[in-house]
Design a protein around this nucleic acid. Structure first.
Lengths: 360, 360
DNA sequence: CTGAAAGCGCTTACAG
DNA sequence: CTGAAAGCGCTTACAG
């Protein structure tokens, strides 16, 4: 008399429903799936539905998938999810969009890939399970070269474009985000806006400085002396050093920057410390803006950090929506593949920006 | 002449391999799966394997699953993955353990559930796909009541125990972690060790204070005046306030705490700020220890924060390993269900702890 | 309008 | 030792 808790009690199948309703399995399938061009009397439909409910019938998606050649599953491969701060939001966005469409999301975690070639082996578990499509999410490459499977099946890239210009992709519009920050700071009355830049070469780095530099340049404001790169990584210590270099370089106090735009929130943390050591009050003496909206930094700082959010959730959702459209044969994905879709990075206003006290 | 990139080119099946190798599909299945008690001549095996490789044969897991009644898929349901800091590590641990066993991990995200009843609807997508087992991860409840499916199928809980004492579960050993911190601080020579407690009632809260309090009590050190609760949430501002209350309450300087153990890293951030404002240098004048090892706080602080890591990755891995054992019929899960498995929370030594300067 | 039957791609008793 | 055949639970032309 062993415990048999995990022995499934004869799963009820479509045949059982048919028997209970006194119709054929064909009919059951039609009414339960609302197959178009199939007219079944309302009375029969009723009977079928009741029988299904009574028996607690749940269609076996494996069987259906085998028959229809569509698993209803999409695979998300993400590089080193743990190290990329908000990867969770990508997964969440993808999962919720998938659920809305009756799709199930399978996750594959990959090691951080130093070169831009995607390992075809990663797709293996997914292709074996007949995934309807693939999403590959990376954060360290501008361009990536995708394995053949991703060319022959619906696929989508997050955070990098396809080198062949074939697979659709989505990336954050870092540059526009930086431009918006400059505009916001200008509107608050700042003219001397410094930038604490990153020294590591990832896609985000270039877009952010570019937005900052070009926007200021377009208003005739020279930025050479206002940009300093972190001497180390883009962490708090680097932000501290950059801020120190910027604010404590011997220039007269009334020529110092009144606003400091940091490459990311972690560097902004260091900038806060530098400001404190220099006796500068944020935001009165110095406005500080970050980038990433990386929890829990922005609301752990005092005052809370005004920063720019990355559209992780939105990219995840965009990915499965685009995938679903490709699977359905809609959407001219070739066109999509040529240029990455840019998603907005909205400013999150908190307490670290104010108008400069020194009126010009 | 429409583009037909997504039209699969006649997927090669087991039948094709059989034909190419000149054997039956039975034989192909046996050699490819290494079916025990089946002796096939080495020569035949060779031929089969070559044919499979040549044709690029990939078994269809859907078909196999249908036949064997085992999908090879496990489902992970996580409550509000985005808000729980390191949920990504749970997913990673689960995914990697799954991959090692040839299992695929499907993810379902759920809203934060205010009450302890798990919504059976969440399992729907998973049961329809014949998931071999379920993992439910929560962080806000001590106990949870699981739906019937999780009683009749292999299932496992992360972060909470089953109210019925039936489903195996795993939780961090918060208390032991806190005890270890006290021991470490005592070994460094501290006697006046304060605790900045959390005011929010989650499982973690109780274990951490308990460990702190009991350990000190066991050494005859009274802790009443050394514990102060955050007046607000367990964020930086609360840590700041608690630290201020602890360090700036008018007690003579040589009676002040020399070490401050914070409920979590976020509160520790606030404690750093309080220390700075009081002119206390960390760790010389005050040692600070956090809890959670929540990126990027510990290495964003100066000096870097010594803290306690949560075994997220390990819990994820434990979950699928346990699940796999249950699926295989091994493991007396009833016994497992009675008491949660505790996983160690290791101290991560960084720069915020030193021996007190004021020798006793 | 409805149903019998084939078949999706596998695995696995069972017979030879 | 090897293979023919049934069957997992569905969907879907096709015939009635």
């Amino acid at each position: 008399m062993r415990t048999e808790r995990h022995v499934a009690r004869k799963q009820v199948g479509i045949r059982d429903v048919a028997a209970a309703a006194g119709v054929s399995v064909t009919t059951v399938s039609h009414v339960l799936n609302d197959t178009p061009h199939t007219r079944t009397s309302e009375q029969t439909r009723q009977r079928v539905r009741e029988a299904a409910a009574d028996l607690g019938y749940k269609p076996n998606r494996l069987a259906r998938g085998l028959r229809t050649q569509a698993s209803g599953m999409v695979g998300l491969i993400t590089e080193e999810i743990a190290t990329t701060p908000h990867a969770g939001r990508i997964i969440q966005g993808a999962q919720e969009a998938a659920a809305q469409r009756g799709l199930t999301l399978a996750i594959i975690n990959s090691d951080l890939n130093p070169d831009p070639d995607i390992d075809p082996q990663l797709l293996r578990a997914l292709t074996d399970r007949q995934a309807d499509g693939f999403i590959y999410a990376t954060v360290y490459h501008d361009e990536v070269v995708v394995p053949p499977e991703m060319h022959t099946s619906p696929a989508v890239l997050i955070g990098a474009r396809d080198g062949d210009g074939d697979v659709p992709s989505v990336i954050p519009d870092e540059k526009a985000g930086a431009v918006a920050v400059v505009d916001m700071l200008r509107a608050a009355g700042h003219t001397r806006i410094a930038f604490a830049a990153s020294s590591v070469d990832v896609p985000a780095t270039r877009g952010r400085v570019a937005g900052y530099r070009e926007r200021l340049a377009s208003e005739g404001i020279p930025t050479e002396r206002l940009i300093v790169e972190s001497p180390t990584e883009s962490e708090a210590a680097g932000g501290y050093a950059a801020a120190m270099a910027l604010l404590n370089d011997g220039t007269p106090i009334d020529e110092r920057p009144t606003a400091l735009f940091c490459y990311n929130d972690r560097m902004a943390m260091g900038a806060y410390r530098a400001a404190a050591e220099l006796g500068l009050s944020v935001p009165r003496d110095l406005s500080i803006v970050g980038f990433d909206d990386q929890a829990p930094i922005p609301y752990s700082l005092y005052p809370e950090l005004t920063t720019v959010a990355l559209p992780h959730y939105e990219m995840g959702a965009w990915a499965v929506e685009t995938l679903a459209a490709l699977v359905d044969g809609k959407g001219e994905h070739r066109l999509l593949g040529a240029h990455p879709t840019l998603l907005a990075c909205p400013i999150v206003h908190r307490g670290s920006v104010a108008s400069p006290v020194t009126a010009s």
